[in-house]
Design a protein around this nucleic acid. Structure first.
Length: 494
DNA sequence: ATGTCC
């Protein structure tokens, strides 16, 4: 058997996606009923409008979401976000909560890029203040943050340092390496350290892959953007997040690189071999899972949390580099100091209380979005909601949203994670030439640094759904609230 | 997403 299980067979009863009956059950909500004899344990529910639903139906993601409803211990419903598309076993843009202690944990429900996520930094400068320095900012950023597939960084972690990164996350980098400010730790999801991390469950191979990757961006849709706030939708929330119209911001979108990928690969294989011992059958081998409380479940959860810490640290290092570049290029000009607004993950599984239940909430391409009354968000944002950071596709807008209290019941406090692919990488390459796209972006005033024209073409805006529409849907559905839109002026890509 | 097939 190959290490990554590639065969994938959907539930026969789910039928071709285009034929699945979707019933409107609320504002921007559609449901596939739980049907007897199909193995479904709960309904599947999708947040979308007609247009996005049409796009979602074009791939196998709806069948995959129906498969997710068969996971042991799943509660309420398997949820699809409006940016949903096909993924490994489980759709990207999918949420599944299983009841603890014995509900399932499935690596496919988190994804290969464990703790892929987003960090937002803001300056006190306005767009026109940086325009003359924009080329230099983007250029220096591309020099100090290695970008692109397979790239390695300038930090080489010893094995002890790696274990501290994996076990202790951002507080370790701040307190023992001076990388970042102590007061900013509270502005990272879970304080930048997941308590359940167990570095001893991360394979040597995974640690080796990660040892020179801290502070690197990676490829695909990962990016660092210099942006300008071009719309404010909620003045009060924007003030709380310290955002203003015309302001220059920096958004970092990356994850756990080869280390997280290897953790996923290792544990999918282990679970594929183990699940029969727990009497579990899944409609697709890519949905391999075990009870959360089993040895294999604890091992994966410990390793996955450690990979989450690695990703938080990766964004921490990159943010420090961006901060240094801003200081240097803008000659310590007042206002050039980058401040952290928030850092949030969108590929995770977390143990959370929802109502009176303790659940393992799988979010794959779905952002945690806690509401104003949550006790687990920074004090500065109580009464407003957690900042929810939504990276758009290259050259298009990104969004800052705020979590809502209603999302607890609607989506286990989860929302979308971005535009979501509408076209495969291959299809995008056939439709777009990288060097043409580069010129088009430049003509729109966007400076791009990307080592590969091919990778650029794969990330063309036409390969993605319309992020404005995706965000409108989550706003209308009540699972997040629009706060501000960010327009890119400089992009560093893999 | 990913040392893009150990």
């Amino acid at each position: 058997m190959s290490e990554t299980i590639r065969e994938s067979a959907g539930v026969a009863s789910a039928g071709p996606p285009a034929d699945v009956e979707l019933r409107s059950v609320g504002p921007c909500q559609y449901e596939i009923a739980c049907r007897a004899g199909t193995g479904m344990r709960v309904p599947a529910r999708i947040f979308a409008d007609e247009e996005l639903l049409g796009q979602i139906r074009r791939d196998r993601s709806i069948s995959q979401l129906v498969n997710v409803t068969t996971l042991p211990g799943i509660v309420d419903a398997a949820l699809g976000m409006p940016d949903m598309h096909e993924g490994y076993g489980f759709p990207v843009g999918g949420v599944a909560a299983t009841r603890l202690p014995d509900g399932a944990i499935s690596p496919g429900g988190i994804g290969f890029d464990i703790n892929c996520g987003v960090r937002l930094l803001v300056s006190d400068l306005r767009g026109e203040d940086v325009t003359p320095s924009l080329e230099a900012l983007v250029h220096e950023m591309s020099r100090s943050v290695p970008a692109g597939y397979g790239r390695h960084g300038r930090l080489a972690l010893t094995r002890d340092e790696m274990d501290r990164v994996l076990g202790d996350g951002c507080p370790y980098l701040v307190r023992e390496h001076g990388l970042g400010r102590p007061e900013e730790l509270a502005l990272i999801e879970s304080g930048g350290v997941i308590a359940g991390a167990d570095p001893s469950q991360v394979s040597e191979r995974a640690k080796r892959r990660g040892e020179d990757q801290l502070g690197t961006l990676g490829g695909g849709n990962h990016f660092i953007e210099v942006q300008v706030v071009d719309a404010i939708f909620d003045e009060r929330a924007a003030r709380a997040f310290r955002l203003f119209s015309g302001q220059v911001t920096v958004l970092v979108h990356t994850g756990s690189r080869g280390l997280g990928h290897q953790v996923c690969t290792d544990h999918v294989k282990l679970m594929d071999e183990a699940l029969h011992r727990y009497g579990i059958t899944v409609p697709d081998r890519q949905l391999a899972c075990v009870p959360f409380s089993s040895p294999e479940g604890r091992s994966y959860f410990g390793a996955m949390c450690a990979a989450m810490n690695f990703a938080f640290c990766n964004r921490q290092v990159i943010a420090q580099r961006a901060r240094d570049v801003f200081r240097r290029v803008l000659h310590d000009r007042p206002g050039a100091e980058l401040r952290l607004v928030y850092d949030v993950a969108h590929n995770t599984a977390k143990v959370e209380r929802h109502g009176d239940r303790t659940l393992c909430v799988h979010r794959k391409g779905a952002t945690r979005a806690f509401g104003p009354s949550s006790g687990e968000i920074p004090a500065a944002y109580r009464g407003v909601g957690q900042p929810v950071l939504i990276p758009g596709s290259m050259g298009t807008a990104s969004y800052v949203l705020a979590g809502t209290d209603e999302a607890d019941a609607l989506s286990f406090s989860s929302t979308c994670h971005g535009a979501g692919r509408a076209m495969s990488r291959g299809a995008a390459k056939r439709r777009v030439q990288g060097h043409v796209l580069r010129k088009e972006l430049l003509a729109r005033g966007i400076v791009v640094r990307c080592p590969s024209n091919q990778e650029l073409a794969e990330e063309a805006p036409l390969a993605y759904k319309d992020v404005d529409r995706v965000v409108d849907v989550v706003h209308r559905a009540g699972i997040a609230r629009k706060v501000a839109r960010l327009r890119p002026i400089g992009v560093v890509k893999g």
